[in-house]
Design a protein around this nucleic acid. Structure first.
Lengths: 182, 182
DNA sequence: TGGAGCATGTAAGATGTTACATGATTCG
DNA sequence: CGAATCATGTAACATCTTACATGCTCCA
């Protein structure tokens, strides 16, 4: 069982969403996949090149006036098939996400409780911001992309983000209270 | 602003919890930090060595009969201070956790919906298992470690895991239903 | 004039995983 | 007898981030 490079498939998938350049892919990731995946330019450009080499995508250089040249990538039939194949593969065991706040909280008997509640407050604030971002993207998709075939699935992922973030915010409040009551 | 190696501090922290060897630290991580951090032996042993070199921990070789030799690491005063200092540092911006299921769901218009509901079922099953694990650890801590100073904080992190996992399970159910109704 | 947006790319380094090597004891 | 547990460690590899280099246009 060889390990799968999901980032490669993320980029492959993004080529079906109207992003055809490295720059465009980065925009999309930062805007819409931010809550469950992120990729830097240092990965995007080399990966695009290798997708082409593997025959999963084609590349066409475009000269634009007023803007820098760009390389437009498009999926080949083989690329589309590879995407579908990956989509049907069983999930690798759910990996634990790293969480700096929980890591610190785990060791927090070594610090004063007001330092810890401070961290909780910071975290809650971050979560609130995140939640607002999700709601913003959701509204945008509902309003402008409702006819888009992708829209439904994109909204599902946002709903996941909203629900788990909401649960985390509630946990912050209650944990904070529990610490102060001591 | 130099980036912080949180894994190093995780290991530093674990040396305060009764784990004194690389092997013991690994056990603890797999058993109790699994939902928010993981570390492989390939990181643990080199990190322990460097903690010693930096004067944050001391190492004492112990010869055991019937068992292999082991190296017992203990925090120095400087190590304890470093831990406290790290605990008080503000959180780095909340990083998005990678989630293979959401990544696949995002591109799922390219697959049949029964393939996708299959993935959702797999995911829900994984989450259920996780939830049971959390409840098991929680019970164990409540019963056997209630006098332990760390217990309260450990229970907080488990509560986080339980709540967000519960929210994710509910999302799975509803998303599954939504897909089937189409 | 300076910053933001568009656009591509690389090199160095940090971080992390996997597979391997070793070897004793205990338990079924 | 074989598997699990205890125990340490490394080398090769995979993955990912950061900082840098380049350069045009549009707008304030």
């Amino acid at each position: 069982m060889t390990k799968i490079n999901h980032t490669k498939y993320a980029i492959l998938g993004l080529l079906t969403t109207g992003c055809q350049t490295g720059y465009g892919i980065k925009q999309m990731i930062d805007g819409s996949l931010n809550h469950f995946w992120k990729i830097s330019y240092g990965q995007i450009y080399p990966t695009l090149k290798s997708l082409e080499e593997e025959g999963l995508a084609t590349c066409r250089q475009e000269i634009q006036d007023g803007k820098p040249d760009k390389k437009e990538y498009n999926l080949t039939v083989k690329g589309k098939e590879a995407l579908q194949h990956w989509l049907a593969l069983p999930l690798e065991s759910v990996q634990p996400e790293k969480n700096e706040l929980l890591l610190k909280l785990f060791f927090s008997r070594h610090q004063q409780d007001d330092v810890t509640t401070n961290l909780l407050d910071q975290y809650a604030e971050n979560l609130q911001e995140r939640l607002q971002t999700y709601i913003g993207i959701e509204t945008m998709i509902s309003e402008t992309l409702n006819d888009n075939e992708d829209a439904q699935y994109w909204l599902f992922t946002l709903d996941y983000g909203k629900r788990t973030t909401q649960a985390a915010i509630e946990w912050c409040d209650e944990t904070r209270t529990a610490l102060l009551k001591k």
